[in-house]
Design a protein around this nucleic acid. Sequence first.
RNA 1: UGACCCAUGGUGUAAUUGGCAACACGUCUGAUUUUGGUUCAGAAGAGUCCAGGUUCGAGCCCUGGUGGGUCAACCA
Length: 508
Amino acid sequence: MGLPRKYGGLTNLRFDDTNPSKEETEYVESIKTDVRWLGFDWGDREFYASDYFDKLYEFAVKLIKAGKAYVDDQDSETISSQKGTPTRAGIESPSRNRSVEENLDLFNRMREGEFDEGSHVLRAKIDMTSPNMHMRDPIIYRIMKAHHHRTGDKWCVYPMYDFAHGQSDYWEGITHSVCTLEFEVHRPLYDWFIEQLRDGDYRPRQIEFARLNLSYTVMSKRKLLQLVKENYVNGWDDPRMPTISGLRRRGYTPASIRNFSDRIGVTKVDGMIDVALLEHSVREDLNKNAQRVMGVLNPLKVVITNYPEGQVEELDAVNNPENPDAGKRKVPFTKEIYIERDDFMEDPPRKFFRLAPGREVRLRYAYFVTCTDVIKDEKGEITELHCTYDPASKGGNSPDGRKVKATLHWVSATENVKAEVRLYDRLFNDENPDGHKDVDFKEFLNPDSLKVLPECFIEPFVKDAKPMDSFQFERLGYFNLDPDSKDDKLVFNRTATLRDAWSKMKNK
RNA sequence: UGACCCAUGGUGUAAUUGGCAACACGUCUGAUUUUGGUUCAGAAGAGUCCAGGUUCGAGCCCUGGUGGGUCAACCA
């Protein structure tokens, strides 16, 4: 879709629904939804290979009449064994030299439903000694007594993909038929059919490019289907899935995915793209556009001892420091608040700038506070902190010009909204950087790929959020309101983390 | 022991079709910052898989290797 947008052309959306047992309306609809969501429009150019079943049948008859196709009545194992191997030529089927009349009769009877599935196939007569396996008399029609999602029960013979693809391109007037690398060896066959079909100079060309491989990510449809079927994830749109619907649910924006695609380009190198590039693309977009909001995921209560009991102050907070048009909002401040547990250390290491006993920090948009007491339970665990605030530092600046090294996000302990936050991580652990490689992925599943934090505190602002709205919880990362959220239970998915210099330093 | 395709900093892509190898991500400095985010400034990092050849000149053309990918479904 991006190529014609760049070079000035059009894209047809076509479903190669040649196999009735594999096609489901559900998939067709999801693909259309996803492509539309990405911001592409195919106008009225929506096609199905099944639109051409009549023409394909006629073309097959034409090939038979030209002596270039024949009906084979051997079973599939025999046909397969006669194909040879990539290094050894195949041998010709005894059916290969049937008369045109007999072939026409048999093919017609196949269509009439006279034969059982698997008993007869139509094959193109090309070359059983070709070094290219796909040219060794490939099967072009098979009997399938199955209901088709669009043509119903009209047919019981269906064309193979290879027999439909190029011809469909031809009839639609396609110039560049772009597909993935594994079809490279099919191209001679694609061209062979076009040569039999075409009348004039025009012919479509198949051009292959590398499919996307993402590090640490399984992209194989077969494996993704297994993840869904065996309930390792909650469906195709589980936020951990590398599907378009998964990314959407997770909070990725269409623009970020388009930018990512532009950055990786279209080439034939079968490489491995670093997920960091995908993540950079979302951050870039979200940072510019996401609403900032304060949220505390892992709360630690702070009592501001010299703050009046029962007082609620409405403080000004900017919605996006990079975009003044995003406006401001009011955040309620009270005597008891929550801060992030990670933002306090009783014994801070040298480079830890945040709150510690006796240290003064800024509460974002609020006041400077100093930690005076650390309250613990019998087990020695910190249950709350006592702080004093400097009333003169309202808004976050002290009139005497003194500086603090850190600014903390916080949420009022009484004026807030409770939410569930889901932290999604990679589905696979660090030992499986090549997620696409053919290994048993179950051994590499990451048990922490989903962490549910049932009781998080977010500032009241998010009450007005709509599903899919993106937020940046200050310093915690990007989140979006899950589409399945109900008013009585807000659920946020983490879209991406922020680059975190502190955690990097901790690991050193 | 075949055919087809591919090969450029750590990663992904460029290089006006033969003219000083560029950009993005990542990494590392420094500045700014009411997010250890963002932004800004700068740095390191490849001589283009190897060996020949053609040419005034080769990442690009030719030959031969090496490495990787794909192909033996009545799947797409």
